[in-house]
Amino acid sequence: MNDLTNTSWLNWFRLASPSTFYPVAGRLIPFFWILSIAFGLAGLWVSFFVAPVDAVQGQGYRIIFVHVPASWMSMFLYIVMAAWAGVGLVFNTRLSAMMAQAIAPIGAVMAFLSLWTGAFWGKPMWGAWWVWDARLTSELILFFLYLGFIALQASIDQVRRADKAGAILALVGVVNVPIIYFSVKWWNTLHQGASVSMTKSPSMAHTMLWGMLLMALCFWMYAIAMTLMRVRVIILERESHADWVQNLKEVKG
């Protein structure tokens, strides 16, 4: 038993090495794509054919099924990115910094989609594409934090210094995530509260919640698949002089 735990721990640490992680990531990518597509199809089905029309907002409320998952993922991915960056900063592990670098663009896409779908929801319901509401503004800051992280890393030529500077920016920016999350409680603003589904009738809340959860799982699995795809490119770029990279069959041809 003791032997077994030791071996499994050893395997986990072995995965922290880019040369071991690269093929494992490659095998996991199709698995996450299948999950993402399956959750996406189920989520879209619930979004358009199961969830009933909203009493107040009509069919326009269906934007919620992409808006909420994109917003959740933008915040969640930021925390994951900052955690990887922090691990890389403390333990000086190469792969952690690469993971943070791989997550940043997906997080930026999610934050952008959250703002975009929010604008297209706000226009018909509030009558404005944009208002300087606490939640909207803090989400915009999150988008800029992602862009800042990407730009800062790209602007420093020395990889290890770029990782360190990026990690500090990412960790300082974490303070913004709870601000986004609690903004609807702390400030009396236009954006509706988080408990929107609880004010409707129970059956309504159920199908809506299921639609949002399925779409969130779709976005989540997509984000993992994209992270693994991008981290493999980053590994190839950063480890290009290592023997194991030069012996890969996709490099040897």
């Binding site: 029309v53 009509g58 069919q59 326009g60 269906r62 934007i63 297209f120 018909p124």
Partner: peptide, 9 residues
């Protein structure tokens, strides 16, 4: 037509 919200949805 999405109940008149086609553009937004």
């Amino acid at each position: 037509a999405m109940g008149g919200y086609a553009l937004y949805v």
